[in-house]
Design a protein around this nucleic acid. Structure first.
Length: 502
RNA sequence: GAGCCGUUAGCUCAGUCGGUAGAGCAACUGCCUUUUAAGCAGUGGGUCCUGGGUUCGAGUCCCAGACGGCUCACCA
């Protein structure tokens, strides 16, 4: 069938020119998209090979290494000087310069000048040499087009800076901005390091449902979907907490899962509708054990990825070295505001009036815990730079956490903060089925969109008996933000959520 | 969801008081056999985000909308 190129010709002058060049390859009987090309060395390997061969020569030797390589990559720079040309190709390992001469290549040199473009992939065979300026370069005996690019590359000096295009067409961002590739390499390393740490600690990696009949484990609005064959409404998980704790009931004493959670809420520099969460549960541990686990895990990830636990975030020095500071929530609030949430403001009304005076809003209906949380968010969290565990939370905003034995108003829970950002949340898990059912019922009284749903199937699991357990959730994207010094969560998610055009 | 800012050539950006739409890179045509943001000479390339309005005349002023960024709200 005749190829219809009219669609592509509409993309403009430069695409048309490239289509014509594509045609030229076809007319010469050369494949523009061959099934394979020969590539025996990466760019980095070729350079290392030459460096090492050179170093192996005797001191003061006039000899030069004779090494033939076959490299391939995307053409990212071309400098044509009449009958000779320098160019750079780039593969996943980096860049290498290539050198082409009319003398060596004859007709195919002219083809290169005429029909090969910046952005195309080519395979080059030749011997390595070092240029006058000292750069290891492949002197080409032959080259072959590996894949034609129809679109020109972004500008070579400034790269691609348009944020919208960077996110929507991340491949362009990755092609032209090497520091972006580095961020995502670090993200991958951080997740590997997290797995390695948890595996070493004896945790078992498990997988639990993304599609859930009842959503739970967090206070958030869910995405809903529908299963046709079963004709039932399902929710995309907002958390995997309740499933993981069922596994603790089942005797898997240390489990973790790294997965996407989905929350149908606002988008911001710290929130993406789908985000990556690590949750782990540890039988016979409590929230203080989880603090130690958290600080050791984050420090170990930083060490693995960055080689240090001292980092810079937004110009601030941050030390992730354990042990992290422990700050009692009530004491933190008192220190920043003078408000004593247990004494003067121990009832909702008094605290609410105080918050009103300070122009703080709590929706839809204020409870003591929500007001305390508001004060925390407003006055304490922003002051935190170095990692801090804020612990001992109000009970009414913690329906899955175990009540403190010394004070019925609070639970054994902490949130981990670094540079004003919450990166983790953990507690001694509530394992009393009667108390848990009661807490769910109390949540029903609140009856706002984000109160926790009654989950009788989960209560049934607790009725089977769950050992005392510590649980922890870590916002993986935020940890990556921290490690890569990025202020926006979109910079650490390859394809952040975007509104569709039109 | 609200407020502020932005959207001009493939990319990065100028565009004065409302008066013929500009530069660099990229592209095209020449010259150029060790360059590296190669160089030199020349040429082409525009839905000025979209739709209305004001005006003799709108990239520029007004209104509405789309998309994005930041801040706020909700949240991790």
């Amino acid at each position: 069938m005749e190829q219809d190129l009219s669609y592509f010709r509409d993309f403009g002058e430069q695409i048309e020119q490239r289509l014509d060049k594509l045609q030229n390859f076809a007319e010469r009987g050369q494949a523009a998209y061959p099934p394979r090309v020969i590539r025996n060395h990466t760019a980095a390997e070729a350079i290392t090979l030459y460096d090492e061969a050179e170093a192996a020569l005797p001191e003061g030797s006039e000899e030069k290494p004779e090494i033939t390589v076959q490299v391939a990559g995307r053409l990212v720079a071309i400098r044509i000087m009449g009958k000779s040309t320098f160019a750079h190709i780039e593969d996943g390992t980096g860049r290498i310069q290539i050198y082409l001469r009319k003398n060596d290549l004859d007709d195919s040199y002219d083809v290169f000048k005429k029909d090969v473009d910046l952005g195309d992939f080519i395979a080059v065979q030749g011997h390595l040499f070092r240029t006058r300026t000292g750069e290891v370069t492949v002197h080409a005996d032959a080259y072959q087009l590996a894949a034609k690019a129809l679109h020109p590359l972004p500008e070579k000096w400034h790269g691609l800076t348009d944020i919208e295009i960077r996110y929507r067409r991340r491949y362009l961002d990755l092609i032209s901005n090497s520091e972006i590739r580095d961020i995502f390499r670090k993200r991958s390393q951080a997740i590997s390091a997290m797995r390695k740490f948890l595996d070493n600690e004896g945790f078992l990696e498990v997988e639990t449902p993304t599609l859930q009949p009842i959503y739970g484990g967090a206070m958030a609005r869910p995405f809903t979907t529908h299963h046709n064959a079963l004709d039932m409404q399902l929710y995309l998980r907002i958390s995997d907490e309740l499933y993981l704790k069922r596994l603790i009931v089942g005797g898997l004493d240390k489990v973790y899962e790294i997965c996407k959670d989905f929350r149908n809420e606002g988008i911001s520099t710290k929130h993406n509708p789908e985000f990556t969460m690590m949750e782990c549960y540890w039988a016979y541990a409590d929230y203080e054990d989880m603090m130690r686990l958290t600080e050791n895990m984050i420090a170990s990830i930083a060490q693995e990825v960055l080689g240090t636990t001292k980092i810079t975030f937004n110009g601030q020095e941050v030390d992730l070295t354990p042990p992290w500071r422990r700050l009692n929530l009530a004491e933190g609030i008192k220190a920043q505001t003078g408000i004593d949430i247990f004494d003067t403001y121990s009832d909702v009304k008094a605290l609410w009036e105080e918050c009103q005076r300070r122009n703080l809003k709590v929706t839809p209906q204020p409870s003591w815990g929500k007001l305390v949380d508001e004060l925390l968010g407003e006055y304490v969290e922003p002051t935190i730079v170095n990692p801090t565990f804020i612990h001992t939370f109000p009970l009414d905003i913690s329906p899955l956490a175990k009540q403190s034995p010394s004070d019925p108003r609070v639970v054994e829970r902490f949130e981990a903060f670094v540079v004003g950002m919450e990166i983790g949340n953990a507690y001694s898990e509530l394992n009393d089925p009667v108390a848990q059912r009661q807490r769910f019922l109390e949540q029903q009284q609140i009856a706002d969109a984000e109160s926790h749903a009654m989950d009788e199937d989960y209560v049934l699991a607790l009725m089977q008996g769950m050992p005392p357990t510590g649980g922890l959730g870590i916002g993986v994207d935020r940890v990556v933000m921290l490690l890569t010094d990025q202020q926006s969560i979109r910079e650490v998610i390859l394809f952040p959520h975007m509104r569709s055009k039109e």
